[in-house]
Computed example of a mutant assay.
Amino acid sequence: MSTEKQVRHRAGTVEENSLKIDRGKAEQIVEALNTDLAATYVLYHQLRKHHWNVEGAEFEQLHDWFGDAAEDAEDNADDLAERVQALGGVPVSGLRSLADHAPVESESDDVYDVRTSMANDLQLYQDVIESVREHVALAEDLGDYATSELLRDVLEDLEDDAHEAHHFLEDDTLVLEDATH
């Protein structure tokens, strides 16, 4: 732990910002962004878990997809955290704080078959998408058009990955269930 004695900016507070966004509005937006940041980290960790544990005939394609999707989530989390800071807030970062702020939960630590894992990911994507959509509207209503645009970009990434996850779950495949035929 750091030996630093002076806290420069307390978590959960919002200071004046250089963006000329009213502190009261910034507080609402920072809260929303921290919620989405926490949810994005839940998604990130679940995708990483699946990246590490995937097996089977489609291993290489799914391993790559889970890895790429986790990187998308990590990039989005970074963008969200930087916007929180720009608005005068403190991005949530500790594991306990992330869990407290996240409106979603990941699956258990158990390893599931790939179809169950992907279905769990799709559900998690859908839950995060709902949260981000609400916050696009909030930022827009509060006149923070840059945050609204950022959240739209995050939403587009989430929807693209959710759409791909949905395609993996379709029942049409070249892989045979019973290889003895």
Rank of each mutant, 00 (worst) to 15 (best):
Y125D: 06
E107H: 14
S97H: 01
H63Y: 04
L95Y: 03
V111I: 13
D100L: 05
Y41I: 15
A99H: 03
P103W: 03
A32Q: 00
T116L: 15
E55N: 12
A86N: 07
V104M: 07
E60C: 03
A69W: 02
A73P: 04
E58F: 06
R115I: 10
D144N: 15
S108W: 01
E134K: 15
L33F: 06
A119I: 03
L37H: 11
I29D: 00
N34I: 07
L62K: 13
N34R: 09
D109E: 10
S106F: 04
N53K: 06
G88K: 06
M118F: 09
D141G: 12
A32S: 04
A26G: 10
R83T: 08
P103V: 12
A139L: 02
D79P: 07
Y112A: 11
A57D: 07
L43S: 13
L142T: 14
D75N: 13
A26W: 00
A57F: 14
H135P: 06
G94N: 06
W52V: 08
E58M: 11
Y112F: 15
H135S: 05
L33I: 11
A81K: 10
A119D: 01
S106Q: 10
E134D: 13
M118V: 10
N34H: 07
K49F: 12
K25M: 03
A99Q: 02
A139S: 15
V132P: 01
L43I: 13
D127S: 13
A77M: 13
I129G: 02
I29C: 01
A86Q: 01
W52G: 06
E71C: 10
A38N: 01
D121M: 06
S97V: 05
A137I: 08
V84Q: 07
N120S: 14
V54H: 05
R96Y: 00
G89F: 04
M118Q: 05
D141P: 14
A69I: 01
L142E: 13
Q61W: 02
E82T: 14
D127M: 12
A39W: 00
Q126G: 10
A119G: 09
H51W: 02
G56P: 10
H101N: 00
L47I: 08
P103S: 11
A73N: 07
Y44Q: 15
P103K: 13
L33P: 02
G89V: 08
A137P: 06
E134C: 05
Y44E: 10
R115D: 05
E140I: 15
A99R: 04
Q126Y: 07
L37T: 14
R83D: 08
W65Y: 12
D109F: 10
A32K: 00
Q85A: 12
Q126S: 09
R96N: 06
L80H: 05
D144I: 11
D64L: 12
T40K: 07
L80G: 13
A99L: 03
